[in-house]
Design a binder for these strands. Structure first.
Lengths: 302, 302
DNA sequence: TAGCGGCCACAACGTCCGGTTGTGCGGCGG
DNA sequence: CCGCCGCACAACCGGACGTTGTGGCCGCTA
């Protein structure tokens, strides 16, 4: 493939071979192999050089694309790569939507989106330089001074139930209403800020929240909810935008107070990446609103 | 690379190996080689499977891009490919601009742009199915019935001279004014419709047009013109849009009549490609205007 | 038209890459 | 604590790819 482009640029097999630091025969063989696998002739061989056939001309831009894609792939893991590498907590949550908006607003900023295990891993990755920014809920008092944090988005937590659930037809509920109900949160991994969040929520309002269990996929989880009248689960409001059509599932807002998941953007202050400032500017800052609830440790990350 | 994506999708080296129909050890070795060449670790090996590292997550979308690019490259030369393959006569001329406009208007239509030797080669390529359409000046009376032709663009021919040329300061000239002047057309290959066009132009107005000579690049040609007070050449009007800033060169319109190069779109009538109709609709049809001149054989291709 | 030179294809050979079989090691679960 | 599962390491083997050597075709030139 690289030989093909080299021959096109050089115009002759011989010169292409020199450029590639191999012999002309090797180039001939490579092109012959490529032509055999593609099933078409790419060059017409003349007495003084090679000219592209029609198929070769059509193939050329795609071949260049392929080489560029390889370049980008290699560059994406090179230290000092210029793409902004951002950690988001869950691709189906608010930060992913926010990042999508940033990408549409600033398409020239290259983004690499990754998902780390938890906030501690994110801070460690920031410190080591393997990521540039992270959307997480963090305890600001535990951050070292060289880590910046801005609370950028509060995502309301809603109750999701099947149609047979006792609360299915309630227009809204208060956290206190949920005492005695079984709140099922499969796939929440102990030790993450998610688990800490729901632990704090359970403790604050005397709820019984099951934060253990295997990780379900989205569809099995929704199917199970739809068929189990005793099950309810918490979901972020933004899942509404990306989940498939709810098969009879009910979204019930929680009020007085509304638990919100406090997404913060965190970054290393001495990171020189120019797009980092653009991202912060694009996000703005959230002032905690009245009537909402977050854990104490999260509220500190104003 | 393909192994990397397979491991990501399968979650385990073993299953990925099964998908690829090779052994687990081979996959291990491939991944190890890839990690060595990239200089980063892509997976964390656990007791039950492999999970992506941060670098692996960042690398993944680029790896998928690479595989998609390969797919497209192979598809571009496959018989029955869905991209519209169009032959244009010179990338710097009107058809290229027209095609660019079509691409902006209908970005979902994939285009492969190629350039063939002359109109005869284009007709042959159309017949054999290796291209879908062609922008050329053709003698319609010589076309077989299964080839469609629509005259879609008339590109006025202008005179290009250096500042020292006797006609440099003329606001416009007539073809008759050019008798006795040396018209220099290097790079026009005998046997093409370009050569036929200028031969007819010379015969019609008694001009001396040198349609031979080696092919110059654009920059050397413009440099030579700028420094030679006895040289003039014909260029299409659309070159204005793409050529570098003329270093003192004069563009002189030709009038009474204005020679125009009659670009036609030609295609094979039984070509089922849906985008072909879209392209024709986008182009419209040119009605020959009064005060212009084309060779008889070209005018026939209304 | 005959000679020559440039350029690519074909053939034979060697090396290295990449695949396979066989085995070892570490972590998780019973 | 033992067994199993999943990946890594080692040795071996075949084929692919690069090399040297050579042949043939075309275009240029005398």
């Amino acid at each position: 493939m690289r030989s093909f482009v080299a021959v096109v640029d050089a115009g002759r097999f011989q010169d292409a071979a020199d450029d590639l630091s191999i012999t002309q025969q090797a180039v001939s063989k490579r092109i012959a192999t490529l032509e055999r696998t593609l099933g078409v002739r790419l060059f017409t061989r003349t007495a003084r050089g090679a000219r592209l056939t029609v198929d070769g001309q059509a193939f050329l831009p795609h071949a260049r694309d392929l080489l560029r894609a390889e370049e980008r792939a290699i560059a994406s893991v090179r230290p000092g790569h210029r793409a902004l590498r951002v950690d988001v907590i869950g691709r189906r949550l608010a930060p992913a939507s926010v990042l999508g908006g940033f990408h549409r607003a600033r398409p020239e900023v290259e983004l690499d989106v990754v998902t780390l295990f938890d906030a501690d891993a994110a801070v460690e990755a920031l410190t080591s330089g393997s990521i540039d920014a992270s959307f997480r809920a963090v305890d600001r008092s535990r951050l070292s001074a060289d880590i910046g944090a801005v609370r950028v988005f509060d995502e309301p937590v809603q109750l999701l139930t099947g149609p047979g659930h006792p609360l299915a037809d309630a227009p809204s509920v208060t956290p206190a209403d949920l005492a005695g109900h079984r709140i099922w949160m499969p796939g929440i991994v102990a030790g993450t800020e998610w688990a800490a969040y729901y632990d704090a929520l359970a403790a604050a309002f005397g709820l019984g929240i099951e934060v253990t269990g295997p990780d379900f996929g989205t569809d099995p989880l929704l199917d199970t909810l739809a068929g189990s009248p005793s099950l309810a689960t918490f979901v972020g409001e933004l899942t509404r935008l990306v989940w498939p059509a709810d098969q009879g599932l009910r979204r019930i807002s929680v009020q007085d107070p509304t638990p919100v998941y406090p997404h913060s953007l965190i970054w290393r202050r001495d990171n020189p990446h120019a797009a980092l400032g653009d991202l912060r500017d694009h996000l703005g800052t959230v002032r905690p609103r009245a009537g909402t609830w977050t854990p104490d440790w999260a509220s500190a990350a104003a």
